[in-house]
């Protein structure tokens, strides 16, 4: 496996943010359309107390994955880890921006584990998800 060289990755460095408009159509494709779903049935979402259908929190983990594959490539696909908390709902029509900052580099066997601190914000600057992800770089 050809890993990214860790010398090109500096703790404290911010990663290029990733912005994602969250349309209902993308939510439908992610979650699968069905009645009585807070993700794809607007009336059911209202009944459960939400102004609009919610994007699954899991969609944001895909944006984390995209950011980490850009940073570490193979070392995230095989050896990646992620731990996140969903702190605010994401509604259809929101635009999310995923942010990441390199937190640390730690030796792990023959490789270096690169840990990234993550946070995701909506268009109003409200944090919707926080956490960490990591993957392997060449020692």
């Amino acid at each position: 496996m050809a890993l990214t060289n860790h010398h090109s990755i500096t703790p404290g460095a911010e990663l290029p943010p990733i912005s994602k408009p969250i349309s209902q159509r993308r939510i439908d494709c992610y979650s699968g359309v069905r009645p009585k779903s807070i993700h794809t049935d607007p009336e059911w979402a209202k009944k459960k107390g939400f102004a609009a259908p919610l994007a699954q929190g899991m969609m944001s983990t895909a944006y984390v994955s995209e950011m980490m594959v850009r940073l570490l490539g193979e070392g995230f696909i095989r050896g990646g880890r992620m731990s996140v908390k969903f702190v605010k709902p994401v509604l259809a029509g929101d635009t999310l921006t995923m942010h990441g900052r390199v937190k640390s580099k730690e030796l792990e066997g023959e490789a270096t584990r690169v840990v990234v601190e993550l946070w995701c914000e909506n268009q109003d600057g409200v944090t919707t998800m926080v956490g960490e992800a990591s993957g392997l770089a060449a020692r």
Binding site: K36, S37, K48, G80, M82
Partner: peptide, 16 residues
């Protein structure tokens, strides 16, 4: 399951 909110998620990716 009428509705559910996802609070936390952890992954470890082992093989593609």
């Amino acid at each position: 399951v009428d509705a559910g909110l996802h609070a936390q998620m952890q992954f470890e990716f082992i093989e593609p």
